[in-house]
Design a protein around this nucleic acid. Structure first.
Lengths: 113, 113
DNA sequence: TTTCTATCCATAGCTAATCTATATATGCAT
DNA sequence: ATGCATATATAGATTAGCTATGGATAGAAA
């Protein structure tokens, strides 16, 4: 019985980048935001999230800054960079293209044989 | 510069299963069919395709039979089993759910914070 | 006061999926 | 004879994501 995945592989960076367009957030907040916006369908595990954020820091898509939350905790807040915004655009358009292509395969068409 | 992927990870089995609902096909034919139906957006590499078919044979989602093509070549033709048909249903509904959830994250909503 | 839950970060190690590269073989056209 | 399209297959690398674990703190509950 194939286990239900927490998210669609290959979409995590896009989801994080998109989330950061709304407002700078710390890691935990990003995970919560994605969970809530998706009505609990998408879950980002810590073991996926933090490595992803590290990768994105290295690529310069986000920058991180230690701050204190409203509730008095220290946390690293991530902000989208210009490069990150550009990358989001690339990923969005590739994603749309892929989804459209998958739709054509899944749909019953008569042509293209 | 992130390289453009050949397909969305996690969708290959679904695409293969769907392709086999149209007609039994050999591996090479499956790859061609997906490429054509997707208007060349999705490419299934041999190194992805054959291992995937092996996995699916083991799980009993497809069965394979050596035959000869119209052009006189030997090739292994794959047919969908009942279990494969069921699996396709599962994957399709999970996929739809995921895509809808991703859509909610990507869309600019005001709620759910 | 102790315990639990929620908030927050991070990494090591595993697994699974996909891609790159390579090997083999044949029918057909040039 | 050379090359191209057809056809199968595996080894090896890479990468993403998950499991499991570790740590720390605030606040509520017991």
């Amino acid at each position: 019985m194939a286990k239900k995945p927490d998210l669609l592989p290959g979409t995590l960076d896009m989801l994080i980048l998109k989330t950061l367009t709304r407002a700078p957030l710390h890691g935990y907040g990003i995970a919560l935001s994605i969970k809530r916006f998706s009505d609990d369908v998408l879950t980002v595990e810590e073991g996926s999230l933090y490595p992803a954020l590290q990768r994105m820091l290295l690529q310069g898509w986000v920058k991180g800054e230690w701050k204190v939350t409203e509730t008095g905790r220290r946390a690293r807040f991530y902000t989208l960079t210009a490069a990150g915004r550009k990358q989001l655009g690339v990923e969005l358009s590739q994603f749309d293209q892929m989804i459209a292509a998958i739709g054509r395969v899944l749909r019953d068409a008569e042509e293209a044989g």
